[in-house]
Amino acid sequence: MTHASDKPGTARRSYWGVGIYRRPSWFLYILPALAVYVAFMAFPLLASLKLSFYTGNGFRLDTFVGFDNYKKLFSDVDIAPRFWGAFGNTWIFFAVHMLVQNSLGLMFALMLSNKRLRGVGFFRTVIFIPATLAIVVTGFLWKLMLDPNFGPVNLLLERIGLRALALPWLGLEETTLPIISLVSSWQWVGIPTMIFTAALQSIPEDYFEAAQIDGASGWQVIKLIKLPILVPMMGVVGILTFTGNFNAFDVVYAMAGANGAPNYSADILGTYFYRTGIAGKHPVGIPDMGLGAAIATITFVTLLAGVLAMRRLTASRK
């Protein structure tokens, strides 16, 4: 967009006159979309940020308290451990997706790009199936699969002589969050697979032909032709994974409840936000919307900082 000839105004003047491209009436086309977007996304988002400086009873957040809500989150004896626990767990949740889901996605895409492989269509369809399921369904299904006493996973482990590994996966503090992250990776691995596949499909056919004439091995083709195309895509996938998972909620809610049981070991920012700002905690159930808004704001800021940092990182690599 830096060359003068690329500017629509200059290039098109000869056909369509500059006037029509500058007419304010174009705005009318944008207005409905913009109105909905501003009213129900941008405004409530910014207003929620403002609410994080207030406290009150229920919906009436009328007392300005400055940074008190943040102070509570960061240092209150009872609240801070919950917040930092959820904050840390969210990073773990994200890291598992980054490592497992995206590595698998990359591997699947490379395998599916092999022209000699049969059944590519079938495998591609299968890999994406879980992404079409509701998280409620996935979560419940895997909860049944992993049941310590009659779940098929443990029955199978026992049958092949690995009784020691037949653990209560969703009951131990050490395993619950990683297992839930893996289930979520299982569900979404189709997305990076598709993105990487699309990138690979954009490689011109003659590259491969040239490589074949040279007698390049499969691994050499991957290393020299495919990976260079995939590296920039990894940045995109990384950002999508980050924004998609940093505010996750459903899968933890479905598999570990609103508390991220056991003992908050699977509690992430999404569940903590729900419990604090929206639902209140069982058995009393009184939400603290101001505190919830503060959690939302921190999530927002972290997301923004994370995305900018990752953009920087991928940009500098180029």
Binding site: P44, S48, I239, A296, T297, T299, L303
Partner: peptide, 10 residues
């Protein structure tokens, strides 16, 4: 880049 859930309270 911004999940809409963050705006839930408002």
């Amino acid at each position: 880049m911004i999940p809409m859930r963050i705006a839930s309270i408002n």
